[in-house]
């Protein structure tokens, strides 16, 4: 079909499926046309005839006709994606939005904090960092999960331990998450004045985790959040993702915490 419509997806064929947990699967997609994205930018994934949803690719951000995504089954369209098999066709459009500010982050002490499936939103950034250690020499990953048996990317833990400072904690063993992250922060040794953090967690948790970071000396200007909102168009036309004075699709989805602090968990 010949069209200039910004809503038209390109065909993406599923070439590999890997279960990560009982609810999360990774899909490797082969595209008609090569795309390149920066970590944190998002694509819209279409299940033909059924639905479309935004997500950030998990593969290394290089120009390619193959990308990977990891999807948790938690709604109509994501459930349908989970039922797909190798060889089935979906659609993608994008990448859209603004990802992590790589130039601003380079050379700094980076602390990535993920809770549960939040790790999916950080994965391509992690790949970027690992492929460019001269720009991003110092990295700490704190990964907290609520259920020991449902851990996304647990097979990568050995590799992560070898590559950077990696702490994991299960909140099953902790009375509260704040305590979990607090404990981890007290363990790590870094120059907090030169540190930037990324928090990928449910919005209800972000303020608590940010408070711990603030107490350690990282200001909210140096904390970055990948926001999740309902999106319909992905390109600033439908207004569904508006949060405060921002469109999450155009101005984000990655935001400086200080810019969106007041609207966390809500939209105004």
């Amino acid at each position: 079909m010949k069209t200039n419509s910004p809503y038209f997806p390109q065909t993406a064929k599923i070439i590999e499926i890997r279960p990560e947990t009982s609810l999360v699967k990774s899909f490797r997609l082969s595209l008609d046309n090569e795309i390149s994205f920066s970590p944190g930018e998002f694509i819209m994934l279409t299940i033909p005839g059924e639905g479309e949803f935004p997500l950030t690719p998990t593969s290394e951000p290089i120009k390619s006709t193959v990308i990977e995504v990891a999807v948790k089954k938690e709604g109509y369209a994501t459930e349908l994606l989970h039922e797909k098999r190798i060889g089935d066709v979906v659609g993608i459009r994008g990448p859209y939005g603004k990802g992590y500010p790589l130039t601003e982050l380079s050379g700094r002490d980076l602390i990535l904090i993920a809770q549960d499936e939040g790790i999916i939103q950080l994965h391509s950034l992690l790949m970027k960092i690992l492929s460019d250690r001269s720009r991003f020499p110092r990295l700490t990953l704190l990964y907290e999960f609520l259920n020991d048996r449902e851990v996304v990317y647990s097979s990568k833990f050995n590799n992560w331990h070898n590559e950077f400072i990696f702490y994991k904690t299960s909140s099953e063993n902790n009375s509260s998450t704040k305590k979990g992250i607090d404990q981890l922060l007290s363990k790590i040794d870094l120059d907090f004045d030169k540190a930037s953090a990324v928090i990928a967690a449910p919005e209800s948790m972000i303020k608590k985790i940010a408070l711990s970071l603030n107490m350690s000396g990282i200001s909210s200007e140096q904390i970055w959040i990948p926001l999740v909102r309902n999106m319909s168009c992905g390109i600033g036309k439908c207004r569904h993702c508006i949060t405060g004075d921002y469109y999450v699709c155009k101005d984000g989805p990655v935001f400086r915490l200080s810019d969106i602090y007041d609207t966390l968990g809500s939209i105004l």
């Binding site: 038209f8 299940i47 033909p48 479309e52 319909s232 168009c233 036309k237 207004r239």
Partner: peptide, 22 residues
Amino acid sequence: CYCTILNEVSSRNKFFKVLQWD
């Protein structure tokens, strides 16, 4: 008021979307 929602129309492996006011 121009809010629209991009909906899918069932069409086997073809892409067919409609824009509707929301």
